[in-house]
């Protein structure tokens, strides 16, 4: 407790203002105002922008017209890439017909030996081609983290322009922030050996996105 008192004492001295209560009320007002900084103007449509950016970050992108078609798209990706037809899925998409597409699915958090993890996402950000995942009982954080291949289903009606818009959606739909909000932009990478970029550092080596709601 004394460390806290010392440090805050020094901070108060440095800040050099009185009226803590008044300033605290002003700060709360700032929190409620939710003012945004400069926003980008995104000229393409959001879906197109999202796709282009995601691909530029080394994700691969496929599209289906309906959510129920997603397992078939997953199966096609797995067989095209020589991956096993055995996946761990987030519980939120457990009810899709995986076995109908010859996929053996386990709905749980991922473990080290899982090779493919399939998740949905809370929303996606067009500006940067980014997924926003929220941790929770139906969407364990490990499914998008431990397996070498991460496949994500992206509902195109939930692609927003910016990270600010994603936060606005979060506030509108959830009471509180979850333990982990993970913004994911492509496969993990490192440049730590001679500044050479390598995909697949500690997180997934491959990220495949299936856009839902695009009629072909």
């Amino acid at each position: 407790m004394t460390a806290k008192r010392d440090i805050l004492g020094r901070v108060r001295g440095g800040v050099g203002k009185g009226d803590f209560a008044g300033r605290r009320a002003a700060a709360e007002a700032v929190l409620n105002a939710r003012l945004r900084g400069p926003q980008p103007t995104i000229s393409d449509g959001l879906i197109e922008r999202f796709r282009v950016k995601a691909e530029s970050l080394a994700s691969t992108v496929d599209a289906v017209s309906d959510r129920k078609d997603a397992p078939a798209a997953v199966a096609a990706y797995l067989s095209a890439n020589g991956l096993p037809m055995r996946v761990v899925v987030a519980q939120e998409i457990e009810s899709l017909d995986w076995s109908g597409c010859a996929i053996v699915s386990a709905a749980r958090g991922a473990v080290d030996s899982d090779q493919v993890g399939v998740t949905a996402c809370f929303c996606a950000v067009a500006e940067t081609g980014t997924l926003m995942l929220l941790s929770g009982p139906d969407s364990p954080a490990t499914v998008s983290l431990l397996p070498e291949t991460h496949i994500a289903l992206v509902d195109t009606s939930r692609i927003v322009a910016t990270m600010e818009d994603a936060f606005a959606l979060l506030r509108a739909e959830r009471e509180a922030v979850p333990r982990a909000i993970n913004f994911i932009s492509g496969p993990s990478r490192t440049g730590d050996i001679e500044q050479t970029i390598v995909l697949g550092a500690h997180g997934p080596c491959r990220v495949h996105l299936i856009l839902i709601g695009i009629s072909s």
Partner: peptide
Amino acid sequence: ATGQTISNYVSLLTGTKQPGDQDG
């Protein structure tokens, strides 16, 4: 830092494992 428009992972971590959570 690196010229990236965004880093691969941006994580916002709040509190601890919640009831029902399988990890964290």
